[in-house]
Structures are given as structure tokens and as C-alpha cells.
């Protein structure tokens, strides 16, 4: 857990996720049903990602004592992955977590079509919470207000050695906008190039640590 000196305050946790002052847990880019999408298209990828990721989410809620859960977009990967198994896994999760859950729609959610109406799930295009504006795409984040987004799956490349580098999923604080790393275990990262004055955090053995600028802007 790492409290970052933002206004309003925010705590980053290794899940990876963010926790607001009222203990709302925010994650982004879960991409449930991704391996199912691959299988449906004739690519033999083993299952297990849904169960694993929803399990991690439950565990994280229990550990942080979160009061509500906000998914900042891309809960579901694609229409082909929205199988009965995927849907029932989400349904059981919603029952088991016992806190209100809000989905801020992401591009993948929009493409995947409507979700069952009887679900205990609030669906919104954007959300204002504890002083933060939460959207999926950082491009839609307002410039002058604190915001949290996902979508980019940011990762940072850190050279260590002459020809080798580490590539780490990261939290990327760019001015007033924080971009969360993707939560899903079958999601990749996209290498980003932060600018002077930005801040970058990563998860090291379950702990969030800040990466000094010297590491990523040598």
C-alpha cells in the first residue's frame, strides 16, 4: 500500500488497484473471457483466467475492507468470450462480494453488448467519487480535475544492462490524471514514455513502489 501525495488523497495497492478516501476500490481492464475468446476462434489457450482474476478481486476486497468496487472499464473482453461460463462466474462474484459494484463502461464492454439487467451492477459512462472523475479512456479525462482512467494498460521499460531491460506494468500519474495498470492476468501492457514531472509506480513483490525518474528517464 502506498499513499500518494495527491489532492484528493489516494492509496495505490499491489492488486493492482487504487483506494479512495471512502475506501472505494478502483480497478481497470479486467478483460474477463479473454481466453474463452481465443478458444472460440480456434486458438487452444487454457482456461482459468476468469476464476483466477475474480478470486484475486474478492481477496482484494476482503483485505482492504473496501466499501464499494468500481471497474474503470473493460470488464469483459469480447462478445465471443461472453460465454455462459463467463457470465455465471461474474454473477457468482457479484453475489459473493457483498458491496455495491459499478462498471464505468469501456470500449470492450460496449463492443460486447448488454449485460443481464437483473445483475446487481450499476453501469455508467463516467463516475465522480471522492473528488476523482473516473473514466475508461484517459483521452476523455478532464484536464483541470483529478481523474482516474485505464484503457492503456501502461507498462514502463527500464534499461538494466547494456542490451537488456525490464518491462513492468505501471501506474502512471500524468499531472492530474492517473492511469491504472490492467488488472486481468491475461492482459498485456503497452510501453509508455512518461514526461518530466510525471510519476510512475509499479508492483514489487505485492507492494507498490515509486520508480524514481532516474530509472525511466536516464
Amino acid at each position: 500500500m502506498l499513499q500518494i501525495s495527491t489532492d484528493p488523497p489516494l492509496t495505490l495497492i499491489g492488486a493492482p488497484a487504487a483506494l479512495t478516501s471512502s475506501r472505494a476500490l478502483i480497478v481497470a481492464d479486467v478483460h474477463l473471457g479473454k481466453s474463452a475468446t481465443f478458444r472460440a476462434k480456434g486458438l487452444p489457450v487454457p482456461e482459468g483466467d476468469n476464476e483466477h482474476d475474480l478470486g484475486r478481486l474478492l481477496e482484494c476486497i476482503a483485505r482492504t475492507g473496501a466499501s464499494r468496487l468500481v471497474v474503470a472499464g473493460d470488464l469483459i473482453h469480447a462478445p465471443a468470450g461472453k460465454t455462459t461460463a463467463t457470465l455465471s462466474a461474474i454473477e457468482s462474484f457479484l453475489e459473493a462480494c457483498r458491496i455495491p459494484v459499478t462498471l464505468v463502461l469501456g470500449n470492450h464492454d460496449r463492443n460486447s453488448g448488454a449485460l443481464p439487467r437483473d445483475w446487481n451492477l450499476e453501469i455508467v459512462p463516467a463516475l465522480d467519487l471522492d473528488g476523482w472523475h473516473i473514466v475508461h479512456d484517459p483521452a476523455d479525462a478532464p484536464e483541470n480535475r483529478p481523474s482516474i482512467a485505464g484503457h492503456w494498460h501502461p507498462a514502463i521499460r527500464i534499461p538494466d544492462g547494456k542490451r537488456t531491460s525490464l518491462r513492468l506494468p505501471c501506474f502512471w500519474l500524468r499531472g492530474k490524471n492517473l492511469v491504472l495498470p490492467s488488472f486481468g492476468s491475461f492482459t498485456g501492457g503497452q510501453v509508455v514514455t512518461p514526461l518530466e514531472g510525471h510519476r510512475v509506480f509499479t508492483v514489487l513483490r505485492d507492494q507498490v513502489v515509486e520508480l524514481p525518474q532516474a530509472l525511466w528517464r536516464p
Binding site: 481466453s35 487454457p46 482459468g48 498485456g188
Partner: peptide, 30 residues
């Protein structure tokens, strides 16, 4: 395991986009 880009089509198949290193992890885990 990797969907090749169709010749001429600029946009890769987004739903099936992944890296082999990510696939490696998925196989190792599951």
C-alpha cells in the same frame, strides 16, 4: 497460437491480440 495479420488489413484482430510472452505466462499458470 498466434493469429497472423491478414495481408493488406491494417488493423490487427484486436480481440485476439496478445504477446507470446503473455501466452507463456497463461500456459504456465493454467
Amino acid at each position: 497460437l498466434i493469429v497472423p495479420d491478414f495481408p493488406g488489413s491494417k488493423a490487427p484482430k484486436r480481440d485476439l491480440q496478445t504477446s507470446t510472452s503473455l501466452l507463456f505466462e497463461v500456459f504456465q499458470r493454467y
